[in-house]
Each structure stands twice: as structure tokens, then as C-alpha cells.
Simulated scan of single mutants.
Amino acid sequence: MSMQAYELRDDDRRPPINDVLEVVQRGLRLQPKRLPSWLFYDERGSQLFEDICDQPEYYLTRAEIDLLNVHAGDIAEVLGEDVRLIEYGSGSAIKTRMLLEQLRSPVSYMPVEISPEPLRQSVQSFSELFPELTIQPFCADFTRPLRLPVPPRAPRRNVIYFPGSTIGNFEARDAIDLLRKMRNEMGEGGGVLIGVDLKKDPTVIEAAYNDKAGVTAEFTLNMLVRLNREIGSDFDLSAFRHRAHYNPMAGRIETHIVSARSQEVRVGRMRVAFGDGEAMQVEYSCKYSLSDFATLAAHAGLKVQHVWLDPQQLFSVQFLVRA
């Protein structure tokens, strides 16, 4: 099979500037204030997230890579041959390379990523690493319905790959909705291969989101840099700070941008007051026990067929099929 990399295009689901402004204004009217985490991922934000993954406190990426080093062959056996691999939020797709190296005669690889530049870099890299693999990149928001391109030949199974711990960024209701969407898009006989971060010592979890080098703090505040650039707001970065705290009752990291003083910010024609110490919620990072996640998947009409753990049992990769 000759390599066939489809031309990249910005999907029409990428929100236009007016929509971003509306989303931000709506979130700032809430009490407490809240902005969606997808606003992190402009080009700079995507790069900063890659840098976060290299920080010594950020165990998640290392644990997942350790897991794949041990289990990628077994995962490939479970997925079987002639798979079409559809990856949500592919980014630089480092972990995907480890999986693709083990898959037998994959039909195609379809990375879905909202940030165009990381997607282009991923396609270029994979075209060189796997010159006979059909690559069908798709620049889109994976949380919305996708018009999947026609594969070069009929796959035996569609597998939606959702590595990392991104499912944890969704509250339970939204996570169930996303899993239902995956269930529909994978079709009959398909599956979901998903990374799930596990509950563990809260000090380990909290340190991962408060690295000493301050990369996560820069990543969080880059959201305000993006808004200033794209919608003309006037957030003063020196007047805000990053805060990430583990809530053991909810089983999640709660990330906020905190106002360091009383101030007013212009967002379009709207003036937004922030009190001294007022926190604006920007991300959740939920952690699960194995039984927690199995229950969540069941609400979406899925069941856990296989679970793989890293050697330290910090992280899991799970394969879900229709219940």
C-alpha cells in the first residue's frame, strides 16, 4: 500500500472569533466564573503542554509510556489486524507510534486534533516513520460529531484511541456523553482504547499539576494571553496566578486562575469585575479507581474488556466494547 496523507484543512467546527468571545463572556457571567479548558490549546499552549509532560513531577506520560513498553504488543493482539485507528486529540502522538509499531496491517491512521500545527508536525513525522500507512488527518474538535473520511479499504474494526488522561478533563455527565459519541462512531464491532489516570497518593497527584519549574502555571496563564490576542481582552497577566488543588471528595484536580487583586477586565464591550482572591475555574482532572471507570463506561453503553497497568500501577489503558 502506498502512503496516502490527506491534505490538512481547518474543519468548519473550529470556533470563529465571535464564538470564542461569546463563550468567554458567557463563562465570565457565571458564579463562580468558569472558562472551558479547550481555550488552553492554541499553538503556544500545545507546545507548553508537551513541555509539561517532560517535567519530573508529571508522572502521567512516563507511566503511560512505561505501560506501552510492557504491553503494546498485547494491546495490538487484542485490537487485531486490519484496524482503522482514529485518535482523538492526537497532539504530537508520541504514544501512538509505539502502538502503530505493533499493529498488524492497519487500514489507516486518522489523527483528530484541534490545533493545526501539532497535527501537521505529527503527519510529517508519521509519514516518515510509516511510509506505507494511509494517514487521514482531521483538524477538528473531537467532542463534536465527526464526518469520518472513507478509509482506503474496509477495516475489520474501528478503534477510537484516546490516550493520555484527557477523559478526566470532563465532568461525569460530559464524559458519559463523549463515551456515547465514541460508541456511535466506532460502529458495530468497534472499540475504544482509552487512557485513564488512577487514584493514588494525593501529594503525588497535586505535585504533577504544580511543577517547580512553573511550566504548568505558564500553560494555565497562556489562556489569558490567547484571549488578549484573539478577542482583544486586556487581562493583566501579572495580576493573575495559577492554582491547582486536589479535591479528595470529588477525586479530581481543580485548576483555577486566581485574581491577585481587585480589578476590572475588558472583554469585548463587557467589563468584568474580579475580587481579590477570586478564582475562575478552568479545568478539572478527574482520577478514577478501576470500578469507578467501569461504572462510568456502563452509563455510556460500554463495558471494559481489558485493562493494562504500568509497573507502578499509577495509570491504566483500557479497552471498551459495546455492552
Rank of each mutant, 00 (worst) to 15 (best):
S289W: 01
F235L: 04
Y209C: 10
M110H: 07
H299S: 07
R14N: 09
E57F: 05
G251H: 08
E43V: 11
L85G: 08
S291P: 00
Q31V: 10
S127E: 14
R26F: 12
D141M: 06
P106C: 10
L221V: 08
R266S: 13
F315H: 08
M3N: 13
Y246Q: 01
N228T: 08
D66A: 15
T134W: 10
M1A: 12
R9D: 07
D141Y: 07
K199D: 00
S233A: 15
D276R: 13
E132T: 14
G168T: 03
G301A: 05
S90C: 05
D19G: 02
D197S: 05
A76Y: 09
V321C: 13
R173K: 13
Q102N: 11
V321I: 15
Q312C: 09
F142R: 02
S115M: 03
R97F: 03
A244I: 00
K212A: 15
G91M: 08
R322Q: 14
E77G: 04
V267R: 10
R14S: 09
M182P: 02
Y6V: 13
I52N: 02
L178G: 01
S262N: 08
M186W: 06
V282T: 14
Q305A: 13
N228P: 09
L227S: 04
R157D: 07
E132V: 08
Q47C: 01
F40C: 02
G214L: 04
D74P: 00
A175W: 00
R226G: 09
D177Q: 10
K199Y: 01
A5T: 12
F138G: 00
I257A: 02
P152W: 10
P32F: 10
L290F: 06
S105K: 11
D174E: 15
G277D: 04
D12N: 11
F40M: 06
L39F: 03
E87S: 06
V272Y: 09
H306R: 15
D51C: 07
P118L: 01
W308K: 07
S127Y: 03
L148C: 06
Q313R: 15
E171G: 12
Q263D: 13
E113P: 01
